[in-house]
Simulated assay, not measured.
Amino acid sequence: MAESIYLPENASKAEKYEAILPQIEALISSETDLYANLANVSAVLKEAFGFFWVGFYLVKEENLVLGPFQGPLACTRIAFGKGVCGTAWKEAKTQLVPDVDFFPGHIACSSASKSEIVIPGIADGKVWCVLDVDSDQLDDFDTTDQIHLENLMQLLSKVNFKVY
């Protein structure tokens, strides 16, 4: 098991993603526990990029329910189609939000959040979770984040997790 992640110094955002994604794949490939993997992925993303908040919401009981995350206190449940996370779930599509104040129905779990990207995890044609990443800076996410985080979610959706 890996105890640390190699992060290249003075690397671009794309280079950081390219360095950590194979390491994440190695980290989760031998672990079947969903929560352990999601917790480690959250930690790696927080460490690599210093995101304000990064974590997962899992589809349970007809809601998105808070899962493993790194950052300040978060909303516990989000309804289908509500806020950025609920919209990503409903549309089964990444939501890239440069300024959360202009997203209709944005749920402000923290007033410090300024921009957000939410990527659905899809397996067997259904959204099973969303990866939610918040920044305390406006317009902090771009297509580089979207491409690499979508690749990460495809990887997570392929791993055979044991869900409790």
Rank of each mutant, 00 (worst) to 15 (best):
A2T: 12
A2Q: 14
S4D: 12
I5V: 15
I5Q: 01
P8K: 11
E9S: 09
N10V: 00
A11L: 13
S12P: 07
S12G: 15
K16H: 09
Y17R: 09
A19P: 08
A26I: 02
L27M: 15
S30C: 00
E31N: 14
E31F: 02
E31L: 03
E31S: 12
E31W: 03
L34R: 12
L34C: 02
Y35R: 13
A39Y: 02
N40I: 01
V41M: 03
V41K: 01
S42G: 05
L45C: 07
E47V: 08
E47L: 12
F49L: 03
F49E: 05
G50V: 02
F51D: 00
F51L: 04
F52M: 06
W53Q: 06
V54F: 00
V54G: 00
Y57E: 07
V59F: 11
E61C: 02
E61M: 04
E62S: 13
L64K: 06
L64W: 06
V65C: 10
I78Y: 11
F80Q: 09
G83L: 12
V84N: 03
C85W: 08
A88V: 09
K90I: 00
A92N: 11
V97N: 00
D99L: 06
V100W: 11
F103H: 06
F103N: 06
P104Y: 10
I107T: 11
A108L: 10
C109T: 09
S110F: 02
S111T: 13
S111M: 08
S111K: 12
S113G: 09
E116Y: 09
I117F: 08
I117E: 07
I117D: 04
V118N: 06
V118S: 04
P120T: 07
P120R: 05
P120L: 08
I122P: 04
I122M: 10
I122V: 15
A123F: 07
G125F: 08
K126A: 14
W128F: 15
C129H: 11
C129S: 15
L131T: 11
D132Q: 13
D132A: 12
D132T: 12
D134Y: 10
S135R: 05
Q137S: 14
D139E: 15
D140A: 15
F141K: 13
T144G: 04
D145V: 10
N151T: 10
N151G: 04
L152T: 07
L152N: 04
Q154D: 14
Q154P: 00
L156F: 08
S157Q: 08
K158T: 04
F161H: 15
F161T: 03
F161W: 15
V163G: 01
V163I: 14
